[in-house]
Amino acid sequence: MVVITGGSSGVGLATARLFIAHGARIAIAGRSEETLQSAREALGGNVLAVRTDVGRAADLRALMNTVHDALGPIDVLFANAGISECPDIFETGEAFFDEVMHTNVKGVFYAFTEAFALMSEGANAVFTSSVVQQRGRPGDVLYAASKAAVRSLARTLAADERVLAKQVRVNVVSPGAIETPLTAAATADPEVRAWVEAQVPMGRWGQADEVAKAVLFLASSDASYLTAGEIAIDGGLGQI
């Protein structure tokens, strides 16, 4: 059984679709009831959709208990929910700071800690970080910092003796410029899209299903000796 936060669009939705194609039972979580139901219909309807604010630990506890009661032990947790906004560094209010960190960092931490006791032996957790965690992102300092924190969380949680004793692997996918509804809205200007594309060594935007395939690999037995690791799906953006 697979739980995906941020599962109603973009990378989360593409990942849900891929896991379903491989026979998995799926639960998706998101903030918008309307978007969740649209995603559920797009996935064929045989999906548990739970409205969840990942910035609230109580919501994540309720999510994990709900999916466990309905579908059984959690085999894969894909902690994917996140937000990215670009206010001026020196005009960033405390409320916005808290929103980014609560969603992007707290949401991953509590998704894992609330799910852990309900995970099957040998389960897998995959977190969504970003290429910007290692190269910086001028103009979006909080997003870059939050995704670096996610990468660090994976390393530390993977090394915890209780996690190791349960043989739970914890890994990270770090996407680069991926075409999703959110990035489409943020780069509606064709010049901006072209500029982003020009930064990528492979010369194109990535697709959500390319990230989904990396998540599927990390959650599979093919990655059985990989934990605390990272796969960058970025066209070389952060590597070259």
Rank of each mutant, 00 (worst) to 15 (best):
T92Q: 10
A39D: 07
S38K: 14
F127P: 05
E41F: 02
V126K: 00
M64R: 02
T92I: 09
K106M: 14
T128E: 00
L60R: 08
G136T: 03
V47C: 04
L118H: 12
N65K: 10
T128K: 02
G55P: 06
T92R: 04
F109N: 06
M101K: 01
T92W: 05
V131I: 13
Q134L: 10
G139P: 09
R61N: 14
A95L: 09
F112N: 03
F109I: 11
L71G: 04
A145S: 05
G45T: 09
G82K: 05
N124P: 00
S146Q: 08
L60G: 07
R137M: 15
L142P: 15
D140H: 14
F116L: 08
Q37G: 04
L48E: 13
V67W: 00
M64C: 11
S32T: 02
A125P: 02
T113Q: 15
R31T: 02
T66S: 09
L118A: 06
A115F: 00
P138W: 08
V54W: 05
Q133N: 11
L43C: 10
L142I: 08
V126L: 03
G30K: 08
A125G: 03
M64P: 05
P73Q: 08
G107F: 05
A58S: 14
L77H: 01
K106P: 11
R51F: 00
R137H: 14
I89S: 13
A58K: 10
L71A: 13
S84F: 12
T52C: 05
L118V: 07
R31C: 06
A39K: 00
A95S: 09
A42N: 08
E99I: 00
S32E: 06
D140N: 14
V67N: 03
L43K: 07
V126G: 02
L36Y: 12
E85Q: 14
A144C: 10
Y143P: 15
I74M: 00
A62G: 08
A111C: 04
A58Y: 03
V100D: 12
M64S: 07
T92V: 10
V54T: 11
A42P: 10
G45R: 14
S32I: 01
S129Q: 01
N104W: 06
E114T: 11
L71T: 06
L142E: 09
V47R: 03
V141D: 11
V105A: 12
N46A: 15
L48Y: 01
G55H: 09
E91I: 07
F127R: 02
G30Q: 06
D75F: 01
V141K: 12
M101R: 04
C86H: 13
D140T: 15
A49T: 03
G136S: 01
A62V: 15
T128P: 07
G122T: 02
V54S: 09
A125C: 02
T92A: 13
